[in-house]
């Protein structure tokens, strides 16, 4: 079975995010990109499905940080590493990335394409459904449990409140993973370093990116931050009333 894991690199939220001078995007000078967490789970799910006859290819957009992501994937057990090149200096939206994946996908002809159900910087939808729409493949997202038998996948799709829908999907298909069946494994630094020496990254040029389908922004900004809580005072009654009011305002009750 051939599994392709398509990953996205997203801004690391640990660092302070700054808006670029133009005011319509993020300042990429100090931005560090990391592997989107649901994509880590997608890779983990692929590794869990792997047996002797399975090949896993990980495809990443050609940002600087992609190398480390790919070598780490190899250290965890991925078989083939592909780095999409050209056109990735600035950010790219999901529509563009989906189109950029078309070539390598038709080359690999995977039985299963796994990707994270969403990334935290998705503004124009998520990669999985877009890719499925583009390639005319079935798609199920928010999957937290996956097994494959004879050309079909059985996926556990999560809804809110803990409800799960078990779906059967004919392969080939695209599946959006929210959580792998086991937490993403740890890989020792020494192993990754070994991969840097021994594994190969295959560059795959994709030419110009086509972001059509996304919408240009007029403005990007940070919400006002609150340094300290607004303190509510008074008698217990007064405080209780005010708190319940707050909850009502937020449509919680």
């Amino acid at each position: 079975m051939k599994i392709m894991v398509a990953v996205k690199l997203v801004p690391d939220l640990v660092e302070n995010l700054e808006i670029a001078p133009g005011g319509t995007g993020l300042d990429r000078t100090y931005l560090r990109l990391i592997l989107s967490e649901p994509d880590e789970h997608a890779l983990e799910q692929a590794l869990l499905l792997k047996d002797e006859s399975t090949d896993i290819t990980v495809v990443a957009p050609g940002f600087e940080e992609a190398d480390d992501v790919l070598f780490t994937a190899a250290a965890k057990g991925a078989d083939r590493l592909v780095k999409l090149t050209d056109g990735f200096q600035e950010g790219c939206n999901c529509h563009a990335l989906a189109r950029a994946l078309r070539g390598i996908t038709s080359e690999i002809q995977p039985d299963l394409i796994l990707t994270g159900v969403q990334a935290h910087d998705d503004l124009d939808g998520s990669l999985g459904p877009l890719l499925a729409g583009l390639l005319n493949l079935p798609y199920v997202g928010n999957v937290a449990g996956l097994s494959i038998t004879e050309g079909k996948a059985t996926a556990r799709k999560e809804y809110s409140g803990g409800l799960i829908g078990e779906m059967e999907i004919g392969l080939p298909a695209v599946i959006g993973i929210v959580a792998a069946e086991a937490p993403p494994r740890y890989v020792a630094v020494s192993k990754v370093r070994q991969m840097v020496k021994s594994a190969t990254l295959e560059p795959y040029p994709v030419g110009d990116l086509d972001p059509g389908g996304g919408i240009e922004l007029d403005r990007m900004y940070k919400p006002e931050s609150v340094e300290r809580a607004t303190m509510i005072e008074g008698t217990a009654e007064e405080i209780a009333v005010r708190l319940i009011e707050v909850l009502k305002e937020l449509d919680v009750l």
Partner: peptide
């Protein structure tokens, strides 16, 4: 949601419609 996000992306590509999430 689990339902809406499945559908929006597929529709965007199929119908060539812009999508905001």
């Amino acid at each position: 949601t689990s339902i809406g996000t499945d559908l929006a992306g597929m529709l965007s590509m199929r119908l060539g419609l812009p999508l905001i999430s």
